[in-house]
C-alpha cells in the first residue's frame, strides 16, 4: 500500500522520541534530520520539506514543549498536527451547484488517470442516485473517446461525444447544454492530457473553463509523481484556479510524497484517491486519518490528547 515506506521511516523516528523522559534541542534537531530524509525519500518536494521541517523545529524547540512532562510525546503531537495540516486538515466534499447540473472538469498531465477517474466519479455519483453525464472532450489521444464510451457503457452512464473533429470547447459547451436540457445532476468533462508548459493546450483549458464555468476543476495527479509535482500543480492552479485534486494509483507501493507537495503548493484539498483500475476503486480522502495512519498513531494520539 502507498505511504507504507514513509510511514515506517517516520514511525521509527517517533519511537525514539517517545521513550525519552528528557528531550534536548539536539534530540529534536537529530529527529528532524531523519524526518527530512524520510520525506525526501518519499518524493516530497525539497522546498516543501524544508519549510515543514523548519516549522516543526520552531514549534518543537519552544520551551513549553521541551519542558513539559512528556516532551517526546509533545514533539510527536507537533509533527502530527503539521502533517495533518500539510495534507489538508478535514475532508473536503465534492461541490454541488445550487442549480443542477454540477459541472466537473478533469485536467492533468498525460496518463495521470483523468479518463478512468471520470468513469469512477460517474459511478460514485450514480450510486448516490445522481444522474451523471460524461463528456468526451479529448479529441487528441488515439481512441480516447472510445475509452470513455467503454467505461460509460459498463456503468450505464451516457457519454456525450461529437467525435474527434470538433473543438473540445464546443464539445464541452454542447455537453453541458445537453446535461441541462435532459435534467442531469452532474456533468463530467474529460479533457486530453497535456503538459503544464504547453501554452496552446493550457489556453484551450481556459477557454473550456470560461465557456462552461465549472463548479469543480479537478487536477488528477499520479501518486508516483516525483519532485516535479509542485511545478505541475502550481501551473495548473495558476492558469485555471483548481478546486481540488484527485490522487491516483495509490494501490501501488509508492511513498506518495506528491500528495503532500501538491496540497502544500496549491492549497487545494485532495478530494478523492484512486486505488485501482476498476471503476469502483475510488474513495474520498481523509487527510487527518491519512496523517495519523502515516505516523501509525491513531491510538497514541488519543492518549496524548488525554494527557
Amino acid at each position: 500500500m502507498a505511504f507504507e515506506g514513509l510511514s515506517e521511516r517516520l514511525q521509527a523516528v517517533m519511537k525514539k522520541l517517545r521513550g525519552k523522559g528528557k528531550v534536548t534541542e539536539a534530540d529534536v534537531k537529530e529527529a528532524m534530520r531523519e524526518v527530512r530524509l524520510a520525506l525526501l525519500e518519499a518524493d516530497v518536494n525539497f522546498k516543501v520539506v524544508k519549510s515543514f521541517v523548519d516549522r516543526v523545529k520552531e514549534r518543537a524547540i519552544g520551551q513549553e514543549v521541551l519542558k513539559s512532562l512528556t516532551p517526546g510525546q509533545q514533539v510527536i503531537k507537533v509533527v502530527n498536527e503539521e502533517l495533518t495540516q500539510l495534507m489538508g486538515g478535514e475532508q473536503s466534499k465534492l461541490a454541488q451547484a445550487g442549480r443542477p447540473p454540477t459541472k466537473i472538469m478533469m485536467v492533468g498531465l498525460q496518463g495521470a488517470g483523468k479518463t478512468t477517474t471520470s468513469g469512477k466519479l460517474a459511478r460514485y455519483l450514480m450510486k448516490q442516485n445522481r444522474r451523471t453525464l460524461l463528456v468526451a472532450g479529448d479529441v487528441y489521444r488515439p481512441a480516447a473517446i472510445r475509452q470513455l464510451e467503454v467505461l460509460g457503457k459498463d456503468l450505464n452512464a451516457p457519454v456525450f461525444s461529437l467525435g474527434d473533429k470538433e473543438s473540445p470547447v464546443r464539445i464541452a459547451r454542447e455537453g453541458v447544454e445537453k446535461a441541462k436540457q435532459d435534467g442531469f445532476d452532474y456533468v463530467i468533462i474529460d479533457t486530453a492530457g497535456r503538459l503544464h508548459i504547453d501554452e496552446a493546450m493550457m489556453d484551450e483549458l481556459k477557454q473550456i473553463r470560461d465557456t462552461v464555468e465549472p463548479d469543480e476543476i479537478l487536477l488528477v495527479v499520479d501518486a508516483m509523481t516525483g519532485q516535479d509535482a509542485v511545478n505541475v500543480a502550481e501551473s495548473f492552479n495558476r492558469e485555471l484556479g483548481l478546486t481540488g485534486v484527485v490522487l491516483t494509483k495509490l494501490d501501488g507501493d509508492t511513498r506518495g510524497g506528491a500528495a503532500l507537495s501538491v496540497k502544500a503548493v496549491t492549497n487545494c484539498p485532495i478530494k478523492f484517491v484512486g486505488l485501482g483500475e476498476k471503476t469502483d476503486a475510488l474513495e474520498p480522502f481523509y487527510p487527518d486519518r491519512m496523517a495519523s495512519r502515516i505516523l501509525g498513531m491513531g491510538d497514541v494520539l488519543s492518549l496524548i490528547e488525554k494527557a
Binding site: D222, M224, G252
Partner: peptide, 11 residues
C-alpha cells in the same frame, strides 16, 4: 518509465 515519476521508478 515516465520521467515525471519519482523514487518509485527504481522499485
Amino acid at each position: 518509465l515516465d520521467a515525471t515519476t519519482g523514487q518509485n521508478a527504481l522499485v
